[in-house]
């Protein structure tokens, strides 16, 4: 009961633009250095200190950016879907702002996952692009992100743009699950088992630890980028309100 009460209070407080702005004001000076440091620790550890993979050699070190980027892109899309649902049901303004703030970095992470996957593919498969199930799913994911961004850009009214993008992301999230499943089926139809980029599920701790740290770092950077963009959007939307006028 206590947990539920705390959660609903947070929801309502963070749903208020003014409270959100103040909250992020306090949070950001701490959050962005921590995010940068965590990413740096994870990546340097992975690049310089983790042992070599006995099958793929040093090219496997791309994993420390590839997997966090792919995970971040997926997480961002799901977050957009959740925000879209919240906006559809309760018409929460903050949810619209969040969707617009998440989309750009989500698309960047999807692009990074694709680019690093392609570069990794060259020494591993001998070619930059293979229609591998994961790369193909990520490509569709990038298209979905670009669709959301194109829709936001096309609609002049910011509230309407946010709500439309929210509905599209809800539909997209349902779709992503089916896309993933269909692409896996499609690959089994057209070719046998291929060499996978990321090998078996068992990864030694010396590799897993830096991977998890860089993953956390990228997620934190994502959060910082979302907060910065959300603040800009909030200020602009609320530019005629009293609290913004007080602020400037």
């Amino acid at each position: 009961m206590m947990v539920w009460k705390t959660l609903t209070r947070w929801y309502h407080q963070l749903g208020s633009p003014r409270y959100f702005y103040r909250f992020s004001e306090v949070l950001l000076p701490w959050l962005w250095p921590i995010a940068l440091l965590t990413t740096a620790v994870g990546l340097v550890w992975g690049l310089a200190f983790a042992p070599e993979d006995y099958q793929q050699g040093n090219s496997y070190r791309i994993i420390f950016i590839h997997v966090p980027a792919a995970g971040g892109a997926l997480l961002g899309y799901v977050a957009m879907g959740v925000a879209g649902l919240v906006n559809l049901v309760w018409r929460m303004k903050m949810a619209e702002v969040m969707i617009k703030a998440i989309a750009p970095f989500g698309a960047v992470l999807a692009a990074i996952a694709l680019i690093t996957g392609a570069i990794w593919g060259k020494p591993t498969w001998g070619t930059y692009w293979v229609w591998d199930a994961r790369l193909t799913s990520m490509l569709i994911m990038l298209f979905l992100y670009l669709g959301v961004m194109a829709l936001i850009n096309a609609i002049p009214d910011p509230r309407q743009a946010g709500r439309a993008a929210g509905l599209l992301s809800v539909v997209g999230v349902i779709n992503v699950v089916i896309v993933k499943y269909s692409v896996e089926w499609w690959q089994s139809l057209h070719q046998g088992s291929t060499i996978k980029l990321t090998g078996g599920s068992t990864m030694p701790a010396e590799m897993l630890t830096p991977l998890l740290i860089s993953m956390l770092g990228i997620y934190l950077l994502f959060a910082v980028s979302v907060l910065w963009r959300a603040r800009a959007e909030l200020l602009w939307r609320e530019r005629k309100s009293a609290w913004v006028k007080e602020l400037v």
């Binding site: 990546l43 090219s59 750009p104 950077l221």
Partner: peptide, 27 residues
């Protein structure tokens, strides 16, 4: 990186550039 230097460093270079640009634009 053995023989894989160009691959690893180009992957990280492009990623760093994209992330840095994004963070800068957001800020």
């Amino acid at each position: 990186m053995g023989t894989h230097g160009p691959f690893v460093w180009s992957a990280y270079g492009i990623s760093a550039l994209l992330i840095a640009t994004n963070m800068w634009l957001a800020y």
